[in-house]
Every structure is written in C-alpha cells, then in structure tokens.
Amino acid sequence: MLFIGASRKSLWPRLLAGVSYGVPLLFIVLPLASFLAYGFFHLENGNVNYTPSLGNYIRFFTDAIFIPVLWQTSLLCFAVAALTILFGYPVAFLLANLKGRRRHILLLLVLVPLLMSYIIKIYAIRSILGGNGLLNRFLLWIGLIDQPLTLFVFNLNAVLLTLTVLLIPFAILPIFLSLERIPRSLIDASTDLGASGMQTFRHIVLPLSLPGIVSAATFVFVLAIGDFLTPQMVGGQSGFTFGRIIYSQFGTAFNWPFGAALSTILGIIVIAVIMVGNRLEHRHT
C-alpha cells in the first residue's frame, strides 16, 4: 500500500523490513524464548545447570504448597473481577446515559486514576486499611461498629479490597463501550411497545452489554493475577498469592529457573482466560 512505486532499487523498504523484524525478534521473541527455556533448567550450588529437565514442573505439581496457592489466587482474582463489575456497571451505565459536558467530566474522572502511579495508589489505600487504620478508626468514631473490623487487616481481604479499588476503571471502560454500541432504535422500539424502563434494561440493555461484562472480567482477572506489588504491600504475613511466590524466586528464594517455570504456568492461565473470554464474547454478539 505504502511506497508502491519504490520498486526501483531503494534501500528504504529493506531498511524498514530489517528494523521491523529485527527489533521484535531480538528484544521480544529472543527474551521470551530464553525465559521459556529457563523453566526447564535447574539450580545447582547456586548456579544454573543448563541440562533440560521437567524438574521445576514436577515440583510445582507435587509440592503441597503451589497448587493450593494458585487456586486461592485464582479465586481471589475472580472475586476481584466480580466486585469491579458489580461496582463498575452502575458507573458505566450512568456514563452511557449522560450527555455533553457532564459525560466528558465523568469519563475524565474514570480515566485519571489510570494514569496515576500504581504504587502511590496502593500506598494511599494501605494508609487507610489495617486493624488500627483510618477506616476502622473512622467507623469506630462515628459509632457504626464497636470493635475494629477484621475485614481491613493486612491479609488476603486487604488484597481483595485494594485490587478492587485499583482495577475498577478497567471494568468501567469496556462495559461503557458495549453500552455505547447498543443501537438506540432497539431501546426506542422496546419503549414504544410498552416496556417499562426496568423491563427494557433487563431484556435489552443487560443482555446486549454482556460482551462488555465478559471483557471487563477478563481484563481485571488478567491484571489482578499478574500483580505482585499489591499483595506484597498490603498482604501482610498471610496474604500469599501466586505472583508473590514468583517474585520471591527472584529475591529471597533466588531460584530463577523455578521462577521462570512458575511464570510460564501463570502465562498459560492468562492465555486460557483470554481465550475463554474471547469465546464467550463472540457467543454473545
């Protein structure tokens, strides 16, 4: 399409092709390949032994720790996805129903947190959580509770709450986009035929926004399961997640090959979730 007349011998197309295949090959494919290969190596006296074996994967499947943690983490991330959709849907729905300046401002308010530093957001949320945190003290002070809630203590609950707050914008946007795509004529037809607002919502709007809900769930799940900063910051002693275990292989445990194998498993789960998500999305459209 571009440079159609460049058939006279010119360096330009070749240069373009060279960069276009060279850069991704060298900096994306090669690192990924070495990462996948590392999962089959193992550690020997603190050095990497390059004889390929399935040892890391066997350890993953036979050790009593890893599969339960992975299962627990998956459930956690699924709960995060459900919560973000529950809280995000009304916002997306309101957004789709607003016009002009109001809609512009509300959309901006949803987008701004996405550009704010992730680490700062975690820090801010952490500062109000905790057994003796601001949230508990505030609830005690207004008399809503008479004992500090354990809900906010630094454990998996705190991870759940923090991830939900962090990832809500990622749920709002796809739902909003799917609501936007619903043809007005369908809603008008439904209203003309005498359906109440609630009926129109239940039978027209909600089913047609399902693809958006599915892609929101996929988005949030994938982002949540790959996160190791949040559990590290608010998870406390007991809030162990799969991402945190992977990260520890590169810090305290210092077992890179095993870390690579665990990350490969994480990658497989992420790809599977995305594929299932895609399937569901297309079934509903």
Partner: peptide, 30 residues
C-alpha cells in the same frame, strides 16, 4: 441512551459517588 426515572438516576448517582470516593478518597490522606 435510555430515559431514566428520577429514582433510577438518584440510585445510579449514589453508586457512582461511592465508586469515586473509593477511587479518590484514599489519595487525600497522604
């Protein structure tokens, strides 16, 4: 998109406000 009743609008605005308190509130503390 839809014609929203007054009740629906109030409920939606309330839910949206809660979300924005959760999004921005913690940042005010530091």
């Amino acid at each position: 998109m839809m014609h929203l009743s007054r009740v629906a609008l109030v409920a939606l605005s309330f839910a949206t406000m809660l979300v924005f308190i959760a999004l921005y509130g913690p940042l005010l503390i530091p």
